[in-house]
């Protein structure tokens, strides 16, 4: 085990959304890029997602959403992170997210949002840039 701690990412699905192709690819690609991934399984709630994120001591929650409801979910997850003193965990949202929702998501405190068909390399580069610039974290 190297002394440097690996980035830890929780991949989460909430509610009744079963579209997991995106995160199944990211699970492998993030791991191949030297990061640790943890998958919540389906049908989670903001409460179970935040509890898992804290317990697993992750740096990021990647919320995958393909059936709408991403704004409500993101808002609740961020509330819960604050309530639990875990603002250091960054929330990232991806899936069927219309670009017009990006400003709302960012205003809620979502670190980044990704459109459908985002290349895995783009996501990996984003995480690497976030680690390289720790000042940006938790601001």
């Amino acid at each position: 085990m190297s002394s440097e701690r690996k980035v830890r990412i929780l991949l989460a699905k909430a509610g009744l959304d079963t579209h997991v192709r995106g995160i199944s690819i990211l699970m492998v690609r993030l791991r191949d890029a030297g990061m640790e991934t943890i998958y919540t399984g389906l049908f989670q709630t903001p409460e179970t997602i935040v509890a898992a994120a804290i317990q697993e001591d992750v740096d990021f929650i990647f919320l995958s959403s393909h059936l709408g409801g991403h704004i409500t979910l993101a808002q609740r997850i961020i509330e819960l992170l604050k309530e639990n003193g875990a603002e250091n965990i960054a929330l990232v949202v991806g899936g069927v997210i219309p670009r017009k929702d990006f400003p709302t998501l960012k205003a809620l405190g979502v670190r980044e949002a990704f459109l459908p068909h985002t290349l895995p390399s783009t996501v990996i580069d984003f995480v690497k840039a976030q680690i390289a610039a720790p000042a940006a974290k938790g601001k």
Binding site: S24, M27, Y39, G41, L42, F43, E56
Partner: peptide
Amino acid sequence: DKNCLIPPDWFTRV
């Protein structure tokens, strides 16, 4: 049954 697409042995937690 909550399995969906992702191989069961990939789950870190369920």
